[in-house]
Design a protein around this nucleic acid. Structure first.
Lengths: 150, 150
DNA sequence: GGACGAAAGTCAAAGAAAGACTAATTTTGA
DNA sequence: TCAAAATTAGTCTTTCTTTGACTTTCGTCC
């Protein structure tokens, strides 16, 4: 956690209370942490992506701001939806998979323990073979199928 | 003990004691000992391997680092033992893996939900590739390592 | 409506750190 | 002895972070 991006990520997350949506000022945050404004954009795009279960909206100009909102899981629909999305890919990188898994955990669809097992199973060390991303997709799909049937 | 690798190994080990997990910087260590960074990697992989009872994780980029964690004998030492046994195999059939998983569940080391995820991940449908048994061994090992670390 | 300033967006380049691979050297053991 | 294994170094690659310059959009004030 030595890097500033992680710190900013945590700081932003700490603003989600019971509300699923927060509003912030890119410039103020940048100033607060003493970094360039685009650093905030970087944190926003890398840490609050759609795969991770967030949407970002913003408004420029005077009084502009950035809104970060949690996509709240519709539970029943979400797993089949995720399966469809995954199936449409021709490969699945580890990072992307992790985003999805952590989102499942965040929304309580799987437990943290289950999430960590999935991450182990589809990690780069586990899949040290050619075409790892294609294989990872396969495995992840099977896991999703299993989750749907339970 | 004349060689620098042994010295570095001891140096790293001297940081354990309080905690079972330490964090270090490859570059800093290399500088400290006046060796090339890859020398540190060499020590890490040869002296802190899984069968020697360690797990290594790392992160690249600004603020990146390497984490070395001891596999500490939990409970009945069953998991480390199982890991060692699995490591000794050169392949792992699905049936054999299922036996192990079910035993873990029966002993309460993992939940039923976790067991079913593991089974999905290492099932024959998930691993529809050549050399599936070798791959399955790899994946299962990583899962065990993850379980030990929690 | 046009000019101005206040936001935020974009993108590329530079920097930081670890990983992978290779070659050379040294040590070991049969 | 001498071939195999272990060690050491060097270099290139990949990944992630950080910064800065430039662009676009929005609101406000003549």
């Amino acid at each position: 956690m030595a890097n500033i991006s992680d710190t900013i990520e945590q700081f932003i997350k700490s603003f989600f209370g019971e509300s699923d949506s927060i509003q912030l000022s890119r410039n103020d945050l940048a100033h607060y942490f003493g970094v360039s404004p685009s650093q905030i954009s970087y944190v926003l795009t890398t840490r609050f992506s759609v795969d991770k279960g967030y949407v970002i909206e913003s408004k420029r100009g005077g009084g502009g701001s950035v809104t970060v909102a949690k996509i709240v899981g519709t539970k029943e629909d979400f797993l089949p939806e995720l399966l469809k999305q995954t199936d449409a890919l021709d490969a699945l990188t580890f990072n992307r998979a992790v985003s999805m898994v952590e989102r499942l955990a965040r929304d309580g669809i799987i437990t943290d323990g289950e999430a960590s097992i999935v991450k182990s199973a589809i990690g780069d060390r586990a899949l040290a073979v050619p075409m790892a991303d294609a294989l990872r997709k396969n495995i992840f799909k099977e896991i999703l199928v299993g989750l749907i049937r339970r």
